[in-house]
Amino acid sequence: MAGKQKNALIVFAHQEKTSFNSALKDAAVESLKKTGWNVTVSDLYEMKFNAVLSRDDIIGNPKNLNHFNYSSETMEAWKEGRLSEDIVEEQKKLLCADLVVFQFPFYWFGMPAIMKGWVERVFLPGFAYTFQSMYDNGHFKNKKALLSITTGGTSTMYSPQGINGDINVVLWPLQNGILHFCGFQVLSPQIFWSPGYATPEDRTKMTETWKARLENILQEDPIHFVPNIMFDMTFQGGFMLKKEAKEDNANDHCGLSVGQHLGKALPPNNQYKGAK
């Protein structure tokens, strides 16, 4: 990207400006700008972003007045320039971004509702994906994305032996089912383990580590996912692993990924390189 303006979008979800999440968002803005990035922040609570899908997401009458199908109606509205203004504005930010950072507290093993609503209303069919262009052939394959999250639990609680389960498994729906599905090159998540129980000095160290990472974020390799070429990418073939892909893995102790584990042990650190 030498010679090209680098654009970052931070999608931020925390209701309190004095929170550690807010401090992490500010630290990311500072670090990225310091290294030449143009940074845009979508502060979802500050924006009072509407997280609820409805007919109001399209302008004008639906194509089918008797049976409203959100997916097909929003796809047509996107093609015809009839999406609601708030959706269009977020899609414009996304199109400009080379890097997208999702900053949020890990609520109930996932995103806060307002951020999940942002994903559901912004990552619309046609704009973000089709069945012909998904995963490593997705629309956003030239963009990088990562999750920056704070947890209530400790790292040991999210270990393969921990009570919450392996963080690699927990992250699979977000990183594969949302980001990789839309084509993003997914970078290893930045996880701040239980900062609510950390000392001020420890939280400062966490913040500085985050800032240092962002200074060289484009040099990082993305997380590995099983490539499309290893699947029969047709409805007739059921989008299933090809026979030769399974045969190549037959003698391996681990499966191919968290999702395509083939009934074997999960490959270690498939979704989080820093996992213990």
Rank of each mutant, 00 (worst) to 15 (best):
E89H: 12
K4H: 12
I149A: 03
D232S: 06
L83W: 01
L266M: 09
K25C: 09
W193R: 03
K264H: 03
E76S: 13
F123W: 11
G153Q: 05
E46T: 14
L44M: 05
N69P: 09
T74E: 04
K25Y: 06
S31D: 04
N38G: 15
K273I: 11
G3Y: 04
A51Q: 11
K93L: 09
G196K: 08
K141I: 10
F140C: 00
M47W: 10
I223W: 01
T40A: 13
F68D: 08
F225D: 00
V52Q: 12
A250P: 05
S22P: 10
D43V: 03
T209N: 15
Q190E: 14
W118G: 00
K264I: 00
M230Y: 09
K116D: 04
L99N: 01
V88K: 12
L83Q: 01
N168F: 04
A113I: 04
M240W: 11
G3I: 06
V122Y: 05
I229L: 14
G183E: 03
E247T: 09
G177T: 05
G255S: 06
T156M: 15
W193I: 05
G110D: 02
S72G: 10
K34H: 14
E120K: 10
M233G: 05
Q271F: 06
H67K: 15
S42L: 06
L95E: 13
S257T: 08
A2Y: 14
I191R: 02
N21R: 04
K264L: 01
I163E: 13
